[in-house]
């Protein structure tokens, strides 16, 4: 398939997942601000902004700033609105491989954003977050039921998985790094949708190291870092299969595969106490792993050139 199209699919996967995860995080964050009587709002907001990669001084951080930066900022790919617009732009250029339903779903989502935004101003942002979660689920659900499992599907899922690794690592960081302004593990689990699966798995009170373990290492919960890495790895293995026949005798064919596989094996074979003793650094590594893997995927598969501009030679 065309590199350009493949790249679009990869980024649709990433952007939609990013919007979904950001909505979950913000929903839990705003609810926490409302329900926890002892919270230090500015610190909690500053921490969140820093961990989502948009740091801001503590005395300027408040809920409004968080929502403006992470929900409504039109031009930033880190905000919900920005990510969904970017996903829709990418889909517009890849309409011939996306099923009509997926395109329509993304387009409807994009078109409804201004109205959702007005509603959020009037009735509180919860409805917006819920809308985003539902629409993301719809996009991936439609992809699941209407796309052939060919390259296009693989790139979409690869993008989604890498983004999921990154976002889950960031969510855990909010708990680990924020000191006493940190959300509880219960909230961290809730913002990844993992709370009820966790309770059903461990039947009991939330315990720090079990919760961290669940989010990092659980094989069966699809939003855990391990499960997402595993899925990214199998997508990469599929994508490289044709090349395996030709050359690879040692290791894996692609750089991206190597990066993802190494992160996965590290999690898989490192003992839990060892992993948790340097947790902040591990989480940071995981985020960098995603960037590196993403860059490697771009290098390998999306060898698109920047548009060239031919400049007529000036007449002397």
């Amino acid at each position: 398939m065309l590199s350009r199209i493949a790249e679009s699919l990869f980024w649709i996967g990433r952007y939609v997942e990013r919007a979904d995860d950001t909505a979950r995080i913000l929903d839990v964050h705003t609810q926490r601000l409302v329900e926890d009587p002892w919270i230090d709002e500015r610190r909690a907001c500053a921490n969140l902004l820093a961990l989502m990669g948009s740091p801001c001084p503590e005395d300027e951080a408040d809920t409004e700033r968080v929502l403006a930066t992470l929900a409504f900022e039109r031009d930033s790919p880190s905000s919900i609105v920005g990510a969904l617009s970017a996903a829709r732009e990418n889909a517009r250029g890849a309409r011939e491989v996306l099923s009509g339903e997926i395109w329509e779903s993304l387009n409807v989502t994009h078109n409804a954003l201004p109205q959702q935004r007005t509603m959020a101003r009037r009735y509180g942002p919860h409805a917006l977050f819920r809308f985003v979660r539902e629409r993301s689920a719809m996009v991936f659900g439609l992809a699941d039921s209407t796309m052939s499992r060919d390259e296009s599907w693989l790139f979409l899922v690869l993008g989604r998985s890498l983004e999921r690794v990154d976002m889950t690592a960031r969510i855990i960081s909010t708990r680990v790094l924020a000191g006493d302004a940190a959300p509880s593990w219960t909230l961290v689990l809730r913002s990844t949708g993992a709370y009820e699966p966790y309770l059903r798995t461990y039947r009991g009170v939330v315990d720090s190291s079990r919760a961290a373990e669940f989010l990092l290492l659980d094989r069966l919960f699809p939003r855990s870092v391990f499960a997402a890495l595993d899925q990214a790895e199998s997508c990469l293995a599929e994508l490289e299969r044709s090349t395996v026949r030709d050359t690879t005798r040692i290791g894996v064919a692609g750089e991206a595969h190597r990066i993802v596989g190494r992160a996965r094996t590290l999690l898989e074979y490192m003992s839990t106490p060892e992993l948790l003793s340097r947790l902040p650094a591990r989480l940071e590594e995981l985020q960098r792993t995603c960037s590196a893997a993403s860059a490697a995927v771009s290098n390998h598969f999306f060898t698109e050139q920047a548009p060239q501009v031919w400049v007529p030679e000036g007449v002397a």
């Binding site: 990433r14 790919p77 960031r170």
Partner: peptide, 26 residues
């Protein structure tokens, strides 16, 4: 809580990584 996680953050770089921007897109 029955357990707490003891960890060090000493080996951590100062700024958390920013989120990947997409390609200079369409």
């Amino acid at each position: 809580e029955s357990t707490r996680i003891e960890f060090t953050a000493a080996d951590l770089p100062d700024d958390p990584p920013a989120q990947d921007p997409g390609p200079l897109n369409d």
